[in-house]
Structure formats: structure tokens, C-alpha cells
Amino acid sequence: MIELLSLPFMQRALLAALLSGLVAPAIGMYIVQRKLSLLGDGLGHVAIMGVGLAFLTGTAPLPTAVVTCVVGAVAVELLRQRGTATGDLGLAILFYGGIASGVMMAGIAGQGAAGLSAYLFGSLTSVSTGDLWAIGILGVVILILTIGLGPRLFAVAVDEDYARVLGIRVKLLNLLIVVLAAVTVTISMRTVGLLLISALMVIPVATSQQLFIGFKGAFFGAMGVGVLAALLGTVGSFYIDSATGATIVVASIGLLAVSWLVAGPLRRRRNFIPYVEDHPHGAVEHERAENHDDGHAHEPGVKVIQHGDHVDYVHGGHRHAVHGDHYDEH
């Protein structure tokens, strides 16, 4: 680990990967909440056009790809807001047009598939100091916006109509989310790669939602999971000599599997409801439950469910309902 960190290219690689791991889940949280999990993938396709364009014009790939992808993202959101069948078709044309024209332009520029693959799957060890600065600055901007505007972005993701009645500029914030997603995708093209970055926007979020209750908890949890996956993937790829981007994604899937193993039994216990057939109140022979007041129903771990004309409390694996001054055991 120490000798690994003494190599300058590994230091840059690790920093770039950690930034991707931190930033991608932050914007991914809003993408997932709005059920747009595949958006990142489509934006990755559009960014390939930017890389091809950079090859063709001889400009720096990162700024060209950022600009192309942001323009593409604005087009995506405007098509999506129209919400029609032609809008859906328009998205498909944009995504495949992006990848096809990118590959074509790269070919004309004499770079071919080999030159592109460093951007499709990442090429972490070739990250330059200039790249690192650009990634760092854009990453900080994304973090400031996703955290600072957090309460508003959350309100828009939960209930657009209500957000409008709060006076929030919903269309503008929706546009901001896809633009930030586009920037995230492009700054991660050297670390995880354009075809895989979408995974780092979505999988740490899914992992964190298994482990934490609440949006805020899941938000910061997802960033932690993303950083951990980036660290494991980068270090792991150095030792087993594998592609870094792919290793980061596999590591994040591994963390998701672990979170399932940890959270599964917890969740099952929390959601267990003993089955009771529907019955009119008082018609079924019942025993008196131990006498306790309503207060315990508000403790965590006690589930309250509507059962026909009355309310049942579920706790400790049994289920009972209020009947006058006492509780009926179901």
C-alpha cells in the first residue's frame, strides 16, 4: 500500500477515482429518486461524440466532451419534458447517434477503437495533473450544488406539483440535475469510463438505501459507499492487474451484495406481520391480550396497520387490536 502511494501516477489515479466515487452517487441519488437510472448510460453515449469531436479537431478531450455532453443533456431533458412517443424516439436517436458519430469521428481522426477505449472503459493511470485539476474543480462544483440545493432537489424529486406550489422553479432544477449528471459522466471518463460510470451513479445509491433510513442518511451513505468502492477497485486493480474502471464497478456490486446480506434479515424482522383472516370486530373468539397502553405503539419496531374497521399493532411477532378498554390478541 505504501509503495503504491509513492508512485505519482498512482496518487493521481487514486485521487481521481475517489473524486468519481464521491461525486457520482451524489447526483445519482436524485437520478434514482426520479426513476431515471439509465440516464447516465445515455449521457455516456453522447459524451463519446464529444471525445470523437476532440480527436477530430485536435482539442483537449475533457473540455470538449463536457460541452458536448451538457448540450446533449439539455436536449434530453427538453425531449423528456415533452413526454411524448416522439420524445422517447428522440432520446434513442440522440444516444445512438452520439455513439455512432463518436466512433466515426475517432476513426476519421485515425484513432480508431483503441484510442476510444481509454475513454469507454477508463484509463486511470494516464490521468495527468491538468486532468486532475479539471476533475477536482468540476467535482467540487457538483458537490456544492447537490448538497446546497439538496432540500429543493429532494422536494422536486418527491412531488413536482407540490414543489411548484412551494414556488420552486421545478423545470430549472430538473434541467440542472441532467446537466450535473452530464458533467459527472464526463469527468469520470478517465477513471471508470463512459460505458460504466452509470453504474457508479446507481449502485452505491441502491447499497446505501439498504443500509440507511431517510434521504439524507442514504445520500451521505451513498457517497461513502462510492468512495469505498473506488478505493477497493483502484487498489485491487493494481494488485490483480485488471482494468480499474471495471474493478471499481465490480467492487461496488460486491458492496451491494454485502448490504443485502446485512440488511435482509433486519428488514424481514421489521416487516413481519402475522397473518390474520379478515373478520368483523368481535365476531371471532378472542383471547385478551396483556393490558398495555397505546403508548408502546409509537415505539420503533411496532408496526401499525389498518385491519378492516380497526387498527392492529404488530410487535414481537404478534398482533393485536384495541377493543374498548383492552387489547384483543389476534
Binding site: V32, Q33, R34, K35, P151, R152, F154, A155, A157, V158, D159, D161, Y162, A163, L166, I168, Q209, F212, I213, G214, F215, K216, A218
Partner: peptide
């Protein structure tokens, strides 16, 4: 019409303050 994955009740209610 609400679209929540795992937000808490407090988080939903506090958006009213925005």
C-alpha cells in the same frame, strides 16, 4: 402522486418549509 423511496416522514414534512 408521491414518489418516495426511503425518505422519512420528517423529511417529507420539512419540505413544506421550503
Amino acid at each position: 402522486s408521491l414518489n418516495v423511496s426511503n425518505a422519512t416522514v420528517r423529511e417529507i414534512v420539512s419540505s413544506g418549509r421550503l
